[in-house]
Each structure stands twice: as structure tokens, then as C-alpha cells.
């Protein structure tokens, strides 16, 4: 569980990256949320056997990471953390879907493998875009933007609380499991018994701490709305940012740019 603890500290680092001051950071959160949404829709709506058409979309995360000065390795590691879940979702495709749809020399590649690869590519793209959004905007600002874009306030606040409680839960679990490790002197810590009671304690403690934090928020005048501490408005740079990227995404969605490039190259050099 110590590793969960570290993973969450990392999540906080993601949030901290949002304090940067690049041209991307300075954009109004709504613009970034909007572009990320359009990006996600364009990527996800691709056909399940589509693979080549997805590659050009990687230009968006790459461009954002470099423009916003985000640490690329860190973001990639975060995405890799989710890989096991994605693999679990897609792993049965090759088993059930054995129709050969691509012939590479003598090796036939089944539709299952193609769709598996496609799932991997799509989730890398969308999860990556979400991480980049949080890292360049901050979770609080993302929620505010969602609210500004018409999501009901209740949902926005719920989302924020969920996010805070993830931290609360993992902090508590980090502390509790460290205490258990230290006192079990390298042995397994009386096995399942102490583990069961540890989990029980954990839920109670998390509940209580969440309640106390909520109390502290109420004590400081919290009425269900989070206010931004940075002023921002939807101006010319935002409009340019949204229009340019969404035009590109929609183009990439309806034109297979890889094939286009391929046929261009083969057309030029017959």
C-alpha cells in the first residue's frame, strides 16, 4: 500500500504542475477543457479496427507537453500506471476475434489484435490528454470550467470532493499500513486478521477525517462553490486555441492522415 501512497503523492505533483506559467497554463481553463473534450470525442469515435488513423492524433499531447513545459517522462509513467486496466479490458479481443484482416508478409494479423492495439492507442491518447489537462490547469479549475460550460454545479462539487477524498483515503492508508509494517517486524503482520481490522479502521478513519475536513471548509464559509484565485477570461487567444485544435481534430477524424501521407509519398516516388 506504500506504493499507492506514492502514486497519490504523484497525483498531487500533477496538480502542482498546474502552478506553472507557460502560455498553455495562462489560457482560460474552459478553452482547455473544450479542446480536450473535442479531442476525446474525435479519438474515441474512431472505428474499432482503426489504428493508422489514430497516430496523427499524438501530435496534440506532444505539442501540449512541450508548450506547457511538462515533464514528459512523468506523464508517460502516469499513463503506464493505467495500462494494466486497459489490457484487462482489451485482452479478450484477440481470443474471440480471430478473423485475419491484415496480411504482413506470411504473418496474418487477426482483427482481435488490431482492435486490441486500437484500444491501447485510444486509451493512451485520451488518458494522456486528461493528465495533461490537469497538469496544465489544476483539478479545481477543471471542475470550475466544467461548471462554466454548463455542467450542473452539484456534479462539479461532487467531482471535487471525490478528488479530495481520494487523497484523504490514500493518506490514511499510507499511515496505517506503515504503522502495521513497523510493528510486525518484517513478518507478515499476523496475516489476514490484522489486515481485516486495518481495512475497517481505515474506512472509519477516512470517513471521520473527510467529515472533519468538510467541517473546516464549512467553518471558512464554504457554500458549495469553489472560487478561482486567478482571474481569467475567454479572449482572443482562447478562441484561436479552440478553433485551431478542433479544426485539426475534425480533419484528422474524417481524413486518414497517415494514409494520405503514405499515398502522397508513394505517389511522389513510384
Amino acid at each position: 500500500m506504500a506504493s499507492i501512497h506514492n502514486a497519490v503523492l504523484d497525483l498531487k505533483r500533477l496538480d502542482l504542475l498546474a502552478n506553472g506559467n507557460s502560455s498553455i497554463h495562462r489560457l482560460d481553463a474552459r478553452a482547455k477543457v473544450l479542446v480536450t473534450l473535442i479531442f476525446t470525442i474525435c479519438v474515441v469515435s474512431n472505428d474499432r479496427y482503426e489504428l493508422t488513423a489514430l497516430f496523427p492524433f499524438f501530435i496534440f499531447p506532444v505539442a501540449m507537453i512541450s508548450l506547457a513545459n511538462l515533464p514528459p517522462l512523468f506523464i508517460m509513467k502516469k499513463i503506464a500506471l493505467l495500462c494494466p486496466f486497459v489490457v484487462a479490458v482489451g485482452i479478450f479481443n484477440p481470443v474471440f476475434d480471430r478473423v485475419i484482416i491484415l496480411q504482413l508478409g506470411s504473418i496474418g494479423i487477426s482483427g482481435g489484435w488490431i482492435s486490441f492495439a486500437s484500444i491501447m492507442a485510444r486509451s493512451t491518447l485520451t488518458v494522456g490528454a486528461a493528465f495533461i489537462l490537469v497538469a496544465s490547469t489544476g483539478f479545481t479549475a477543471v471542475c470550475q470550467a466544467l461548471e462554466g460550460l454548463g455542467m450542473p454545479k452539484v456534479f462539479a462539487v461532487q467531482l471535487l470532493f471525490l478528488y479530495r477524498y481520494i487523497f484523504v483515503l490514500t493518506e490514511e492508508s499510507g499511515r496505517a499500513s506503515r504503522a502495521r509494517e513497523l510493528r510486525s517486524c518484517g513478518k507478515k503482520g499476523q496475516g489476514i486478521h490484522s489486515f481485516g481490522s486495518l481495512v475497517g479502521h481505515l474506512l472509519l478513519r477516512t470517513w471521520q477525517r473527510a467529515e472533519r475536513i468538510h467541517m473546516a471548509m464549512l467553518a471558512r464559509g464554504f457554500t458549495g462553490a469553489f472560487h478561482a484565485s486567478r482571474q481569467s477570461r475567454f479572449g482572443i487567444p482562447e478562441i484561436r486555441f479552440v478553433l485551431a485544435w478542433s479544426a485539426l481534430f475534425i480533419f484528422l477524424r474524417f481524413q486518414n492522415a497517415s494514409q494520405l501521407l503514405g499515398s502522397l509519398v508513394t505517389g511522389l516516388f513510384p
Binding site: L16, N19, F139, T140, I213, S229
Partner: peptide, 10 residues
């Protein structure tokens, strides 16, 4: 219990 925002300033 009292500190819950991402930075001290916030």
C-alpha cells in the same frame, strides 16, 4: 484537517 487546497496560497 484544516488544509485541503493544493497550495498554501490557495
Amino acid at each position: 484537517d484544516q488544509l485541503f487546497m493544493p497550495t498554501v496560497y490557495d
